[in-house]
Simulated scan of single mutants.
Amino acid sequence: MEPNDRHTVVMVPDPTAPGGERPVFKGYMITVVEYLAQGLNFS
């Protein structure tokens, strides 16, 4: 996913991930996609 004004990428510490960090996406479009994923039963 490319960065734009609708969402951002935040790296959070995760000892199980390669490099010790994993990306977490934040923003309102991420919330919309998660809502649709739940409603359509996909991950």
Rank of each mutant, 00 (worst) to 15 (best):
I30E: 08
F42S: 04
P18H: 05
D5S: 10
F42R: 06
F42Q: 00
P13H: 06
G39D: 11
Y35T: 15
A37V: 06
F25K: 00
V32W: 10
T8A: 11
Y28C: 15
V9P: 00
P18F: 01
A37S: 12
Y28N: 13
V12N: 06
P23F: 07
K26R: 12
V12Q: 04
L36R: 11
T31E: 15
R22G: 08
G20Q: 00
T8Y: 07
P15T: 02
V33M: 10
Y35C: 14
V9E: 04
G39C: 13
L40G: 05
F25Q: 10
D5F: 06
F25G: 06
I30F: 03
R22Y: 03
P23D: 09
T16A: 10
G39Y: 00
G20R: 02
F42C: 00
P18C: 01
T8P: 05
V32N: 08
L40S: 02
E34Y: 08
P13Y: 00
Y35V: 13
T16C: 11
N4W: 02
T8V: 09
V24S: 04
R6T: 14
I30N: 04
P23L: 07
L40M: 13
S43C: 14
I30K: 09
G19R: 04
A37C: 11
P3G: 10
G27S: 00
S43F: 14
S43W: 13
T16S: 12
L40K: 07
D5V: 11
V10R: 04
P15Q: 08
Y28G: 10
R22A: 05
I30S: 05
F25M: 12
R6S: 15
H7P: 02
E21G: 01
T31F: 08
R6E: 15
T8H: 00
V24Q: 05
S43E: 13
D5K: 10
L40R: 07
M29D: 11
Q38T: 08
G19W: 01
P3W: 07
P3K: 05
P13A: 11
G20W: 03
I30Y: 06
E34L: 12
V9F: 03
V32E: 11
D14G: 08
G19E: 01
A17K: 05
T31K: 12
P3C: 08
E21C: 07
Y28W: 14
N41C: 13
Y28M: 15
T8I: 08
L36Q: 12
D5Q: 13
Y35N: 13
V12W: 08
T31A: 14
E34R: 13
Q38D: 12
S43T: 15
I30G: 02
T31D: 14
H7R: 00
I30L: 01
D5W: 06
V33L: 09
V9Q: 00
T8Q: 09
V9N: 09
G19H: 04
S43I: 08
P18M: 06
T8M: 04
P13W: 07
T16F: 01
V24M: 03
N41H: 15
